[in-house]
């Protein structure tokens, strides 16, 4: 760990990596909270994995893969959202089909990409150490767009996430805000792909928010705690992986997953204990009455 902090003060690529982790955490905390409470992790997974199609296409046609990721993520979000809104039958099957088709298209494009054979692994599992510092500006912009939209429409988002039918009756255009929410999830996926790659993105998107949900009970607080947790855990993962030269993405995910499982167990334990104490208290009161 000490090595890491010494190296951090010397190497620009490590400073970029830490900045990437922090910027990604904002999206992870804010949109992850919506994904967790709306229970759309499966939809988010579909969006994340179909992004490979866009990255592959960009590579094939000679663009920067990340520039293909953003439009692909948004297209996947709109397509999957449309399926969810208008195609009620077999929604889960259709989403898994889009999930797999997106990946298949990506792998084919990457296999046939001319010239330099790209490293598939780095798209699938990410490499935060290779993020170019120019990407930071793109990430700052995406974070700002996301925060401005969520700040402006948090009531509409709450209405749609909490109770779609009631939102529709209050005149909220549910379809529009649902798709907007998925597009913002797509933007977040692109931010997080730089940190952990598209296979592991789902864990980083949902687990910090789920841990926050164990302890706080409002969307705003969940967002704040999940953002801080995401930042702390991904930077810790980066630091832990640095000394023994481990791949960063999987290290971060193991850390996040471990924290989630411990937290879920702790919550369960505390709840049982509370129930036991309440039952004991009830029994004492009952005895006192007799």
């Amino acid at each position: 760990m000490e090595d890491f902090f010494t190296a951090l003060s010397q190497h620009a690529f490590l400073q970029t990596a830490v900045a990437t982790a922090m910027l990604a955490s904002i999206g992870c905390g804010v949109m992850g909270t919506y994904v967790v409470v709306k229970r759309i992790a499966f939809i988010a997974g579909g969006i994340a994995h179909s992004v490979l199609g866009g990255m592959g296409a960009a590579l094939y046609f000679g663009f920067e893969p990340l520039h293909g990721a953003l439009p692909a993520a948004i297209a996947a979000a709109l397509l999957i959202g449309w399926v969810r809104l208008h195609w009620h039958a077999q929604e889960d099957t259709l989403i898994s089909a889009l999930w797999a088709i997106g990946m298949a298209v990506g792998v084919l494009f990457i296999a046939k990409a001319p010239g330099y054979q790209a490293d598939l692994m780095s798209y699938l599992f990410g490499n935060i150490l290779l993020v170019p510092s120019e990407s930071l500006w793109l990430m700052v912009t995406l974070d700002l767009v996301l925060l401005v939209i969520v700040a402006a429409y948090h009531r509409q988002f709450l209405a749609v996430v909490f109770d779609e039918e009631f939102a529709r009756l209050r005149g909220v255009p549910v379809g529009f805000f649902y798709l907007l929410l998925l597009v913002l999830v797509a933007v977040t996926v692109v931010l997080l792909i730089q940190v952990v790659g598209l296979i592991l993105v789902l864990a980083l998107l949902t687990l910090p928010a789920a841990v926050a949900g164990h302890y706080v009970h409002s969307l705003g607080r969940m967002m704040l705690i999940a953002t801080l947790l995401g930042a702390v855990l991904s930077i810790t993962g980066l630091a832990l992986s640095y000394g023994p030269d481990l791949p960063v993405g999987p290290t971060i995910i193991l850390l996040v997953g471990g924290v989630y499982i411990l937290s879920a167990m702790l919550t369960q334990f505390l709840e049982r204990r509370r129930a036991r104490l309440a039952a004991a208290q009830g029994a004492r009161q009952g005895a006192a009455v007799e």
């Binding site: 709450l158 209405a159 109770d163 706080v216 969307l219």
Partner: peptide, 19 residues
């Protein structure tokens, strides 16, 4: 039509009726 464990207070739910 909402999950009962949704993290929201009574006040916030009623506020949605003013949208």
């Amino acid at each position: 039509s909402f999950p009962r464990d949704f993290p929201v207070t009574v006040e916030q739910v009623v506020q949605l009726g003013r949208l």
